[in-house]
């Protein structure tokens, strides 16, 4: 399975960041959907299950770790990559304990993210 076939869901309340990141990923031929809250993420996952979720930890409303718990309870095969600031390293580690594939620090380098997505998708049998 190629990277182009990996179904990716970006979840971050920072709309400009998410939209720009998605545009860059689409330029590379990836299939990306964006949502801007934890609640929207759960709906989107229910409607069309992604292979990899890339999600900010700190969001208004449902927090990244809450969504991660839900995903791992209902769809453990979905791989989750968390995004966090330097100060949120503890959240990242907590996320790993809860079953996140990995976490990355913001600001983010696209190549690092794409590498993680490829690794995560490979575990799930894609890419």
């Amino acid at each position: 399975m190629r990277m182009e076939d990996v179904n990716i869901l970006l979840v971050d309340d920072e709309r400009e960041f998410t939209a720009t990141l998605a545009e860059r990923m689409e330029l590379r031929g990836l299939t990306v959907r964006c949502v801007y809250s934890g609640e929207e993420a759960l709906k989107e996952i229910g409607a069309d299950k992604p292979d990899v979720v890339v999600m900010d930890v700190m969001m208004p409303g449902l927090k990244g770790l809450d969504i991660l718990r839900h995903i791992k309870a209902t769809n453990p095969e979905i791989q989750v990559i968390l995004l966090t600031g330097q100060a949120g390293t503890r959240d990242g580690m907590e996320g790993m304990k809860l079953g996140a594939f990995d976490y990355l620090l913001k600001p983010l380098e696209l190549d690092a993210l794409l590498g993680k997505i490829a690794e995560a998708a490979a575990i799930g049998g894609k890419a």
Partner: peptide, 27 residues
């Protein structure tokens, strides 16, 4: 600390926008 967290979000957006400019130049 809260403001720093938000600033990092701003910088993350700058970073991706700069990356997109590079992508546009490459295109």
């Amino acid at each position: 600390a809260a403001a720093c967290h938000d600033l990092m979000n701003v910088f993350a957006t700058f970073n991706q926008a700069l990356g997109l400019m590079d992508d546009c130049l490459a295109a």
